[in-house]
Amino acid sequence: MLDDRARMEAAKKEKVEQILAEFQLQEEDLKKVMRRMQKEMDRGLRLETHEEASVKMLPTYVRSTPEGSEVGDFLSLDLGGTNFRVMLVKVGEGEEGQWSVKTKHQMYSIPEDAMTGTAEMLFDYISECISDFLDKHQMKHKKLPLGFTFSFPVRHEDIDKGILLNWTKGFKASGAEGNNVVGLLRDAIKRRGDFEMDVVAMVNDTVATMISCYYEDHQCEVGMIVGTGCNACYMEEMQNVELVEGDEGRMCVNTEWGAFGDSGELDEFLLEYDRLVDESSANPGQQLYEKLIGGKYMGELVRLVLLRLVDENLLFHGEASEQLRTRGAFETRFVSQVESDTGDRKQIYNILSTLGLRPSTTDCDIVRRACESVSTRAAHMCSAGLAGVINRMRESRSEDVMRITVGVDGSVYKLHPSFKERFHASVRRLTPSCEITFIESEEGSGRGAALVSAVACKKACMLGQ
């Protein structure tokens, strides 16, 4: 009897593995994704193909990295998701002549009506938060230079001027797309009239992360975010950046690689679950690469896999709870928690219980395998993109072996128990001629924006502006 049951459990697990095998990517698959990513990057950089390229390769006008001589107080704003952060950054000489960066910050959550109302409502709310922060720190009387981390696709015309191309991540505030974001912020500050600010720089969160990590390690020339969304930036040779005049030196390019796949480059790798996630998203047909990796989508992918296993009578005796059938019910943090389970399955059992399920031991094991399959594919897909960037940098610099540091931020990278190990191992397999160091950014977005502002202020002083 026991043997029969054991055989049935083994057969069930084997069927589960057959279904989950769809998520496995072979090294040849990853090399294919990497080569296609490089081709799209090239198209994004070139003037004649930029418009139709899915990977936009947006110039950021960040050319210099901090040298350690900029000092002063800077205000930093960070808008990239449902939370908005205001930070005071003091850049100065530390002990023994070292450079020191001290920060104080406060988080504000953005109400739904500000995210989806008008641009005026959104930026009025942001300036209200700045006003509140300055009151708390008794700094209303000071006109501070301000660095703005704005983590949406922007076409820069200068370091302090950028046109919002399109909202992502659930934002829909009308009247912002096609307009200068810094102008919208300046107008809102003017409307309030109770404080003055000098907006000197606007950067993407990947750029802010790279600059913040450069402060720790001067070989950091790539910034990457794996959180709600997924994106990367890197220092490109100016001669390859056709959208900006000049051939000397390097400029940081914001790849906006989340949109890779929007022209069909990933079609052969998309599964039924991916198509369902895409169809029910706020932007169907867009940001397809990001939807395979980002935390906004990972939990939902797992939920759809679990429903398939229920329908195949391989999980929960073929019956799903009402909660499990509800879109968004299986949160991405559950994926991390399930994979963090120590082996007694308590954590998995508790999560499934909150979803109205009474799982068996085998159910718990199957749910864990589903989570591992989805998150491992995410790590491997992400590795193909980064390997594409790094191999490109090595080739354009004609280096036999390139040493490089990548600064990384984002909740999936930082909080998932195995993502970074799987990701690092896969990147290294795909970049055999590179020695890569990964560092995690601390308060990256805010500190990085302030350091970019410090560079901009120093330049302005040198130019006598």
Results as ranks from 00 to 15, higher is better:
residue 98 Q to P: 11
residue 109 S to W: 08
residue 187 D to R: 09
residue 166 N to H: 15
residue 186 R to W: 06
residue 241 V to G: 01
residue 350 N to M: 05
residue 285 G to N: 05
residue 265 E to N: 10
residue 234 Y to G: 02
residue 326 T to S: 14
residue 292 L to E: 00
residue 95 E to R: 10
residue 314 L to Q: 07
residue 178 G to V: 13
residue 29 D to V: 12
residue 373 S to N: 06
residue 266 L to G: 00
residue 396 S to M: 08
residue 203 V to Q: 13
residue 219 Q to P: 07
residue 405 T to F: 06
residue 258 G to R: 02
residue 226 V to C: 06
residue 339 E to S: 11
residue 387 A to D: 00
residue 360 S to Q: 07
residue 431 T to K: 00
residue 218 H to I: 08
residue 371 C to R: 00
residue 368 R to A: 07
residue 465 Q to K: 05
residue 113 D to L: 08
residue 346 K to A: 05
residue 292 L to K: 06
residue 62 V to R: 02
residue 442 E to A: 10
residue 26 Q to Y: 03
residue 26 Q to R: 05
residue 107 M to P: 05
residue 296 K to D: 13
residue 372 E to V: 04
residue 15 K to H: 04
residue 126 I to E: 00
residue 36 R to A: 11
residue 315 L to V: 12
residue 110 I to K: 00
residue 208 A to N: 01
residue 170 G to C: 14
residue 143 K to A: 03
residue 41 M to P: 00
residue 421 E to F: 10
residue 155 R to L: 10
residue 367 V to T: 10
residue 317 H to Q: 12
residue 440 E to M: 15
residue 404 I to A: 08
residue 68 G to C: 07
residue 82 T to W: 08
residue 225 I to Q: 03
residue 42 D to K: 07
residue 358 R to Q: 13
residue 69 S to C: 06
residue 435 E to T: 07
residue 89 V to T: 08
residue 58 L to K: 11
residue 243 L to T: 06
residue 458 K to G: 06
residue 86 V to F: 06
residue 6 A to W: 06
residue 43 R to E: 11
residue 335 V to Q: 06
residue 419 F to N: 01
residue 37 M to G: 01
residue 209 T to L: 08
residue 36 R to M: 04
residue 166 N to V: 05
residue 430 L to A: 03
residue 223 G to Y: 03
residue 446 G to M: 13
residue 132 D to R: 05
residue 121 M to V: 15
residue 357 L to W: 10
residue 177 E to H: 03
residue 225 I to G: 02
residue 282 A to L: 05
residue 18 Q to Y: 04
residue 91 V to T: 12
residue 240 N to Y: 02
residue 460 A to T: 13
residue 303 R to L: 00
residue 451 L to M: 10
residue 18 Q to C: 15
residue 280 S to I: 08
residue 161 K to E: 11
residue 220 C to D: 00
residue 381 M to T: 05
residue 142 K to V: 13
residue 137 H to C: 10
residue 367 V to K: 00
residue 418 S to I: 08
residue 437 T to M: 05
residue 363 D to P: 00
residue 227 G to F: 04
residue 405 T to A: 08
residue 43 R to A: 07
residue 350 N to Y: 02
residue 111 P to W: 04
residue 267 D to Y: 04
residue 177 E to K: 05
residue 235 M to G: 02
residue 87 M to W: 15
residue 356 G to E: 07
residue 121 M to Q: 08
residue 206 T to G: 05
residue 85 R to H: 13
residue 133 F to L: 04
residue 26 Q to L: 07
residue 329 A to W: 04
residue 274 D to G: 01
residue 390 I to H: 01
residue 438 F to V: 04
residue 245 E to T: 06
residue 345 R to G: 13
residue 82 T to Q: 06
residue 155 R to P: 04
residue 363 D to H: 03
residue 326 T to K: 11
residue 396 S to D: 03
residue 347 Q to K: 12
residue 199 V to K: 07
residue 78 D to N: 09
residue 225 I to W: 13
residue 88 L to H: 06
residue 393 M to F: 03
residue 278 D to F: 00
residue 410 G to P: 03
residue 359 P to Y: 09
residue 202 M to L: 15
residue 359 P to G: 09
residue 218 H to P: 10
residue 321 S to I: 14
residue 208 A to S: 03
residue 375 S to K: 02
residue 437 T to R: 11
residue 50 H to C: 08
residue 244 V to R: 01
residue 356 G to Y: 04
residue 69 S to M: 15
residue 19 I to N: 06
residue 246 G to L: 08
residue 433 S to F: 11
residue 448 G to A: 10
residue 453 S to R: 15
residue 431 T to D: 00
residue 147 G to R: 05
residue 419 F to M: 01
residue 369 R to I: 03
residue 289 Y to P: 02
residue 67 E to M: 05
residue 455 V to M: 15
residue 441 S to A: 13
residue 238 M to R: 02
residue 181 V to F: 11
residue 309 L to A: 04
residue 92 G to W: 07
residue 16 V to M: 13
residue 131 S to P: 01
residue 406 V to H: 00
residue 188 A to V: 04
residue 80 G to D: 08
residue 137 H to G: 04
residue 189 I to Q: 02
residue 156 H to M: 12
residue 133 F to K: 00
residue 90 K to D: 06
residue 279 E to N: 08
residue 403 R to C: 14
residue 292 L to R: 04
residue 27 E to D: 15
residue 209 T to H: 01
residue 410 G to E: 02
residue 7 R to F: 15
residue 404 I to W: 03
residue 380 H to T: 13
residue 44 G to F: 00
residue 465 Q to G: 08
residue 334 F to D: 02
residue 183 G to N: 14
residue 25 L to V: 07
residue 447 R to T: 13
residue 389 V to N: 00
residue 261 G to P: 01
residue 176 A to E: 03
residue 188 A to K: 02
residue 77 L to G: 11
residue 455 V to F: 05
residue 93 E to R: 11
residue 22 E to G: 04
residue 380 H to W: 12
residue 450 A to R: 06
residue 312 E to D: 11
residue 190 K to A: 13
residue 221 E to P: 01
residue 449 A to F: 12
residue 301 L to E: 07
residue 403 R to K: 09
residue 27 E to P: 01
residue 156 H to T: 15
residue 254 N to P: 01
residue 155 R to N: 07
residue 282 A to S: 11
residue 381 M to G: 02
residue 212 S to T: 03
residue 362 T to F: 04
residue 181 V to Y: 10
residue 455 V to A: 13
residue 49 T to N: 05
residue 332 T to I: 11
residue 279 E to C: 15
residue 17 E to P: 02
residue 432 P to I: 13
residue 360 S to P: 01
residue 105 H to V: 07
residue 84 F to M: 13
residue 380 H to S: 10
residue 446 G to E: 15
residue 255 T to D: 02
residue 426 S to E: 13
residue 275 R to A: 12
residue 337 Q to T: 11
residue 446 G to Q: 15
residue 182 V to S: 05
residue 164 L to Y: 11
residue 59 P to G: 01
residue 41 M to H: 00
residue 188 A to F: 01
residue 300 E to T: 00
residue 280 S to L: 12
residue 57 M to Q: 04
residue 416 H to W: 11
residue 456 A to V: 10
residue 112 E to R: 07
residue 38 Q to D: 04
residue 269 F to D: 02
residue 303 R to V: 01
residue 278 D to A: 02
residue 295 G to E: 10
residue 319 E to G: 11
residue 258 G to S: 02
residue 69 S to W: 13
residue 341 D to S: 07
residue 383 S to P: 01
residue 443 E to N: 07
residue 9 E to S: 13
residue 396 S to W: 10
residue 393 M to I: 04
residue 122 L to G: 09
residue 433 S to H: 11
residue 202 M to H: 06
residue 214 Y to G: 13
residue 409 D to H: 08
residue 272 E to T: 14
residue 96 E to H: 10
residue 92 G to A: 08
residue 182 V to E: 13
residue 81 G to V: 10
residue 269 F to L: 13
residue 402 M to D: 12
residue 404 I to G: 00
residue 220 C to R: 02
residue 37 M to H: 00
residue 119 A to D: 08
residue 275 R to Y: 12
residue 287 Q to K: 11
residue 390 I to D: 00
residue 161 K to W: 07
residue 272 E to D: 09
residue 86 V to S: 09
residue 285 G to M: 03
residue 70 E to K: 15
residue 394 R to W: 02
residue 40 E to G: 03
residue 372 E to S: 06
residue 108 Y to T: 01
residue 77 L to V: 12
residue 270 L to R: 08
residue 82 T to E: 07
residue 276 L to I: 05
residue 19 I to C: 14
residue 244 V to S: 06
residue 273 Y to R: 00
residue 417 P to L: 04
residue 337 Q to V: 08
residue 89 V to Q: 03
residue 110 I to W: 06
residue 115 M to R: 14
residue 281 S to H: 01
residue 448 G to I: 10
residue 186 R to L: 08
residue 194 D to F: 14
residue 137 H to M: 10
residue 74 F to R: 01
residue 339 E to T: 03
residue 229 G to N: 09
residue 381 M to A: 06
residue 45 L to A: 02
residue 317 H to K: 08
residue 74 F to Q: 04
residue 13 K to Y: 14
residue 129 C to Q: 01
